[in-house]
């Protein structure tokens, strides 16, 4: 007797979000839980974005510094290396140098820089602010204007600070990253607030604020599973793809940073760091991640191969 499989019939589908102009990348449109291909289609595979800073990272561990070398001093060269040498199809720029404590670069300087980066990259861009709300409300609209027509993904906006940046993205045709603090209700609320300003749902991506492996990974993991289940059950205000900033979380952890002498018996620092970033990403892929922002080229390679396997069916 043939067994009757336990297949789910979902009424909802994840929104498609398109990033970029010429070499645009689309994410989303999943009709089922991650990688259950027999249950529903997933026309777009999850993507990895290379994280690039506009300033020399002061506290990156040796594993990362040696992977990039000299280009860390020059964001344009850094982006070029990601694209030409590592084959990046998506780059995530972090505009640290605008932060009042990290260089306090002017709005004009930042806008000029992102234009230069755009020309050098030739691939779709994700633009992240410096983390200071007041300053981000100045620089991100300027970046939006400078990158008009590039259909970037810009953010992150939060429940307390979304209006200025949303308006700018709306005006200049960009999509937006909506960040919520590991909280499904705030995620939904923020999506509603942004939508109420006229932003189409197909231009919103959820940043659920992930934690690294061993540092609260399971909280965002379950929030993502719950949100994805709600979306597939028809909740339109949670039907956005997820972006997970994995690199910045993993490379802060003791496991990714400490030398072998400091952590006797835990193995060489390089392998430990790479596997920590790759495994954190792998876990979030299983929870529904659509965009992973990562740092180490080797970890990115591993995760891309994992995605190929998972999408192969």
């Amino acid at each position: 007797m043939a067994i009757e499989l336990a297949k789910e019939k979902w009424s909802g589908v994840i929104n498609q979000v398109k990033i970029g102009a010429a070499k645009a990348i689309s994410v989303g449109q999943e009709q089922a839980l991650p990688f259950l291909h027999e249950e529903g289609g997933a026309p777009h595979k999850p993507v990895v974005a290379y994280e690039v800073w506009d300033t020399v990272p002061a506290d990156w561990p040796e594993a990362l510094i040696s992977a990039y070398g000299n280009v860390l001093k020059d964001p344009v060269a850094w982006v070029k290396k990601c694209v030409t040498e590592f084959g990046a199809q998506l780059v995530a720029i972090k505009l640290i140098s605008a932060h009042p404590d990290m260089g306090n670069k002017s709005v004009e300087e930042i806008a000029a820089l992102v234009e230069k980066i755009k020309k050098a990259a030739g691939v779709p861009l994700i633009i992240s602010g410096c983390g200071d709300n007041a300053k981000d409300n100045l620089i991100l609209p300027a970046c939006a204007e400078a990158l008009k027509g590039e259909n970037c993904l810009i953010g992150s906006v939060t429940q307390d600070n979304y209006k200025t940046i949303t308006a700018a993205c709306l005006a200049d045709g960009h999509s937006i990253i909506a960040e919520s603090p590991i909280d499904i209700n705030i995620a939904k609320q923020l999506n509603i607030l942004i939508s109420d300003m006229g932003m189409p749902a197909e231009r919103i991506v959820i940043n659920p604020t992930v934690g690294a492996l061993g540092y609260g990974l399971e909280y965002a993991y379950s929030i993502m599973e719950r949100a994805r289940l709600a979306a597939l059950s028809g909740d339109k205000m949670l039907s956005m793809p997820f972006i997970c900033f994995v690199g910045q979380e993993t490379w802060r952890t003791k496991e990714a940073r400490a030398t072998e002498e400091e952590l006797a018996g835990w193995g060489p620092a390089l392998e430990r760091g790479i596997v920590w970033e790759a495994l954190t990403s792998a876990a979030f892929l299983q929870a529904g991640a659509d965009i992973l922002v990562m740092r180490h080229p080797k970890a990115i390679d591993i995760v891309k191969k994992n995605i190929e396997e998972l999408m192969r069916g």
């Binding site: 193995g267 060489p268 495994l279 892929l285 299983q286 591993i302 994992n306 998972l310």
Partner: peptide, 29 residues
């Protein structure tokens, strides 16, 4: 590396026992 990632996928998705070849501390940890 890839065998650790594959094992991770199974741990997330319901496997009760996961057997792999790589037994380096960083893989196991």
């Amino acid at each position: 590396y890839l065998q650790v990632v594959e094992a991770a996928d199974y741990i997330a998705k319901y496997a009760s026992i996961v057997l792999l070849e790589g037994a380096e501390p960083w893989q196991a940890l």
